[in-house]
Amino acid sequence: MDSQHCPLCGKNNQCSVAAGRTDEPCWCFDAKIDPAALQRLTPEQRNQACLCPACAGALEAAERGEQN
Rank of each mutant, 00 (worst) to 15 (best):
C6Y: 01
C6P: 00
P7I: 02
P7F: 06
P7S: 03
P7Y: 03
P7T: 04
L8R: 04
L8Q: 04
L8W: 05
L8C: 01
L8Y: 02
L8E: 01
C9I: 04
C9E: 01
C9H: 07
G10A: 08
G10I: 04
G10W: 08
G10E: 05
K11W: 07
N12P: 10
N12G: 05
N13H: 05
Q14K: 07
Q14E: 13
C15S: 05
S16V: 00
S16K: 10
S16G: 04
V17W: 14
V17L: 15
A18T: 00
A18Y: 03
A18D: 05
A19Q: 09
A19I: 04
A19H: 08
A19Y: 01
A19S: 10
G20E: 09
R21K: 12
T22E: 11
T22A: 08
T22H: 10
D23S: 08
D23C: 01
D23E: 10
D23Q: 06
D23T: 04
E24Y: 02
P25W: 01
P25E: 02
P25Q: 04
C26V: 00
C26P: 02
C26K: 00
W27M: 04
W27L: 02
W27P: 01
W27K: 02
W27C: 02
W27A: 00
W27T: 00
C28D: 02
C28R: 02
D30M: 03
D30Y: 03
D30A: 08
D30K: 04
A31S: 07
A31I: 03
K32S: 10
K32V: 06
I33H: 07
I33G: 05
I33A: 05
I33K: 03
D34E: 10
D34C: 09
D34I: 07
P35G: 06
P35F: 08
P35M: 09
P35E: 07
P35I: 05
P35Q: 05
A36E: 15
A36P: 13
A36N: 14
A37F: 13
A37R: 05
A37D: 10
A37E: 09
A37N: 13
L38T: 15
L38C: 14
L38I: 15
Q39H: 14
Q39P: 14
Q39E: 15
Q39D: 15
R40W: 12
R40L: 14
L41I: 12
T42L: 13
T42S: 14
P43M: 10
P43Y: 12
E44W: 13
E44Y: 13
Q45N: 06
Q45W: 12
Q45R: 05
Q45P: 08
Q45A: 14
Q45L: 10
R46D: 14
R46Q: 14
R46Y: 14
N47D: 15
N47C: 14
N47T: 09
Q48E: 15
Q48K: 15
Q48M: 15
Q48D: 13
Q48W: 11
Q48R: 14
A49R: 02
A49K: 00
A49P: 03
A49M: 08
C50F: 10
C50S: 12
C50P: 12
C50R: 12
L51W: 11
